[in-house]
Amino acid sequence: MSVRAAVVRRMDGIDSVRVGQFLVPVGVLVVWQALVGVTSGVAFAGPAATFSALVGGIEAGWLATGLRRTMTELVVAYVLAVVAGLWIGVALGSSDFWSDVFEPILIGTYSIPKVTLFPMFLFVFQLGMDSKIAFGWFHGVFPVAILTMSAMTTVSDEHLKVARSLRLSRWQTFREVIVPSILPGLVIGLRLGFNLTFLGIVLGEMFAAREGLGYTLVEFIAGGQIDRIMAIIVVLVAVAAVVNVGFFALESRLGARERTADIRM
């Protein structure tokens, strides 16, 4: 292949990637609409029906109420997961010995199906918001702690020595030395932590709750209100997409290269 051909191909590649990325959502919509035709007779809702259920849900208030409840639980659980995960990760990661001890234990716990433990959260925290927050926290804290811990290896001993000789307080060392060094690895942990907290909250609501979008999802099965189920899914996907796109932008600004999609409940 000549150099010119290679260049032309490369340029074509870039353009077609952009166009292709734009076409993916369009393709999803087309397939979704096509499914309406195929499944005629079976209960199913196309894009138009879903959109009107979405608008109707906002006007009637049930969608906004559920969303507010779910988002409140999500934000509280996520903040707690980040604080605890950061603390655990920094504390264990500052010592080679303790990180060697706890890394396999944390990763092992990370890979069991946490959903089975939800009844224990219900026993302790009852049916209200608390159990969902605790369960979401339990999902989110592991990736934050694990990725913080492994990012701590990038903190240079020299920098810590300088901090010690400058007599920086623990908080100052954390803020001025540790956080800037671990940031690229940390943001990945923060993203995965958010995704898992979100999953935990929705799972918890689906199993035992009286409010929230997860609860509404299961409620609508009995009534066969597929358009409303789809409307909720659209809202949940939109929340996840917006937050993750924000994280991707942050990650590429901070130069976090390693992009893993691996999450485990």
């Binding site: 993203r191 995704n195 979100f198 999953l199 909250i201 929705v202 799972l203 689906m206 979008l213 997860g214 999802l217 909720i232 899914i233 949940l236 996907v237 996840a240 997409a241 937050v243 993750n244 796109v245 999609a261 691996d262 999450i263």
Partner: peptide, 9 residues
């Protein structure tokens, strides 16, 4: 982004 979506929805 696939795994970011609370899949069980």
């Amino acid at each position: 982004i696939y795994y970011a979506v609370p899949f069980f929805a």
